[in-house]
Design a protein around this nucleic acid. Sequence first.
DNA 1: ACAAAAGTATGCAGTCACTGCAAGAATCTC
DNA 2: GAGATTCTTGCAGTGACTGCATACTTTTGT
Lengths: 197, 197
Amino acid sequence: MRERKKQQTWLALHRAALDLACAHGVNEVTTEQIAAAAGVSARTFFNYFPTKEAALVGLRPDAISPMAAVLHAVPDGTSPLEALYVACSELLTDFIEDPELWRRRRELLTANAGLLRLASARNHNTEQQLAVIIAERLGCDENEDPYPSLVVGAAMAALRATIRFHGPHPETDPFDTLREAFDLLAAGLPAPDRFGE
Amino acid sequence: MRERKKQQTWLALHRAALDLACAHGVNEVTTEQIAAAAGVSARTFFNYFPTKEAALVGLRPDAISPMAAVLHAVPDGTSPLEALYVACSELLTDFIEDPELWRRRRELLTANAGLLRLASARNHNTEQQLAVIIAERLGCDENEDPYPSLVVGAAMAALRATIRFHGPHPETDPFDTLREAFDLLAAGLPAPDRFGE
DNA sequence: ACAAAAGTATGCAGTCACTGCAAGAATCTC
DNA sequence: GAGATTCTTGCAGTGACTGCATACTTTTGT
């Protein structure tokens, strides 16, 4: 019951931050305005987000990546690359569910250097989490064996490339693009002619 | 004459920031203290660095990645992956030349989340630069074609995995590890058994 | 149903990063 | 050495963020 109220105000703050930042620019909006737009006090804002940027990016305090959760659920026999494909698909599902939210997020990110920092830090964080899980699946240590970091990094690169490609090409199916990218990773990279529209 | 004085105070501020941060912790040192230790006024500090973190990292305003410069110099016929291998090797050369410096940097980075942000932002930045160059070499647009982002992201993943692996294994040759990782990228990823010591 | 307990929201006061402005000091040009 | 240029500095202000104390709301035990 309490949980639901918290989720509600969390989302309200996040959306308010996004709205105001899109309308007037990131540096032109204050935490007080965000709090007021969400219907809470200025002090409460900082009970939900440690920083203004965090509210804009939508960073949750616990910050367990949904991709990590999905990756955990993939059956054991699956190959690392295929398992990561499933995890990436999960994020893509989120992506096509509310493209407007993502479009605004991306708009803000490209316009503001500080936010870009935060976002890439978050990517780095989930990458670490995924590497740990992949290492577990393979029964090795992610510090002892470079393979988990490598395959996760490559998979995330595929995901980033897909999302980036989907921006100027909204008519394409992002799952197809992602599949193509993963096929390329599986087959070997130096064949650029097989790729693109 | 003026140039030399500027370089001098720049370095003085950077060293003072580093010293104080190492001694008392990043959040326990103020910009005023840094400025005082460097022998300039508090206001002057912000004439040299836009932010406290920038002074700690020693970020110069222009910040063109050395990897991008190396990548530019690689002859045209080389495949994207091979060209990126050369660029990554360049950074590895830096790495084995002064491992102590890198160790300290890494120490500060892992201890402080804010600095980690800045560092990963810089990584993201060079990744973008490299993607642009690769796109130029292939004669395509890095926004229209996902391949450049993909191959650059995979290459950077290989580099990160290599550096990460070299931490607990200083006796190994990082160039060998990097070569193995790139071979894996070229041949296709889902063969983890070929990898490791 | 009521009171205690636990969790949450808010206001207040303060620190510090960071900025624009305008005046003073150093450096360069002629 | 006078004047233009550039750098430094102090001042005053905004806004992010924190700790603390207080009031409110939801949950729990009886």
